[in-house]
Design a binder for these strands. Structure first.
Lengths: 214, 214
DNA sequence: ACCTGAACACCGTTCAAGT
DNA sequence: ACCTGAACACCGTTCAAGT
């Protein structure tokens, strides 16, 4: 921990420390200063490893995506539809695991090695199902969008649950009364996070229906 | 502008000023202090109108959604598929219009009046096509997720374009070389923002194919 | 080469005080 | 009732200096 010419931590250590904070205190609490403190470093030492906070955030996204099993998704032993489901569910779960991970994913480009690897796997998979390359690319785009969108709705729902307090005073006029949205109200449980059958799996299946019929 | 017992601005003025800043300087620049300064107010005056910065951000999301023409989406004069396309395209455009609007949408719950109204319109539309209520709710969920996901990919792409500089030094190992992702490379133009035919419209059509066949 | 310490220009939010 | 001014506890980032 004393000053010296040898690296006392690694990039991975920093990313891990950042995830620890993300998990425990949310996205807003992920600060260069906080991460440094967690590692017993000075804030400025972090800039020896990452050129900016943004670079650190992107490394976190890559770390998140690196845990996806792309090899399994490419293994033709199981039907393609099943493999897409597994991959999509894993990605969704990875984002849902950490409070505020969605903001993370949204706040930077998705051009890291693992992000591109995911796309590559999806395109290849759809082509193996007989799709021309152009349609396979569009299909991969649709699947990525779908999963990301579900993750966004997940995140929104979780923020909602975490805040059922105090905020009804000044902002009251902006929020809804249930009576004016009867359909949403009546079906809320069907699309909630733990609903069975999962609205996510159902929607993804309909998307795959449409894609694979094309 | 002088101190006094009368409101010098409205909630809408504050939201508008915040959008001005969002558009010109991005999400990170939207600060209570900055918005207040733009209106000739002191930061603390903002807390007379909104209980927190988060409440202001949510009001911005509602403002964004309020411009959607839900009446047109409910008008059975045009085919349902066309109306969904129009609604989805409008929502996507609304988010793409302002730099950083996606982070905005992702950073809070989507439970405002207009957010719920959008959902209500979608469920009703699918039911009018003959879907049972439960499936219509899941279909609405899928469409919302899809559009949100596309907006997220849009946003990621735009951040990417805005930053093709300097960042290749330390973080270099994390980014990709094109050669290892040939399919992504070869098809990038097909799913890019202004591609024709639009990957967004194509994917939404496949999703609707699957949904309406169910 | 790696790290510290001090500094710059910011944040969101609270609170007593003015009109 | 609405707003200001000062203050608290933070930010990301830069830069000269130490070992």
């Amino acid at each position: 921990m004393k000053p010296g010419p040898r690296r006392s931590v690694s990039q991975v250590d920093i990313v891990d420390a950042a995830f620890e904070i993300l998990e425990q205190k949310g996205f807003a609490a992920v600060s260069v200063r906080g991460v440094a403190a967690a590692l017993g470093l000075t804030p400025t030492a972090i800039y020896t490893y990452f050129p900016s906070k943004n670079a650190l955030l992107r490394a976190m996204v890559e770390e998140l995506l690196s845990s996806l099993d792309l090899a399994a998704a490419g293994d033709t032993g199981a039907p393609w539809r099943e493999r897409v489901h597994a991959l999509a569910a894993a990605l969704r779960a990875r984002i849902a695991e950490h409070t505020g991970a969605m903001v993370l994913v949204t706040s930077g480009p998705l051009d890291g090695r693992h992000a591109l690897g995911l796309n590559e796997t999806l395109i290849a998979g759809f082509m193996a199902e007989g799709m021309p390359q152009a349609d396979a690319a569009r299909a991969a785009y649709a699947v990525r969008a779908h999963v990301l969108g579900v993750a966004a709705l997940d995140a929104a729902e979780r923020v909602d649950d975490a805040e059922t307090a105090a905020e009804t005073s000044t902002a009251g006029a902006l929020w809804s009364d249930a009576a004016s949205h009867p359909l949403t109200e009546a079906t809320a449980h069907l699309v909630a996070d733990g609903a069975e059958p999962s609205a996510f799996a159902w929607g993804l299946d309909r998307l795959l229906d449409g894609l694979l019929a094309a």
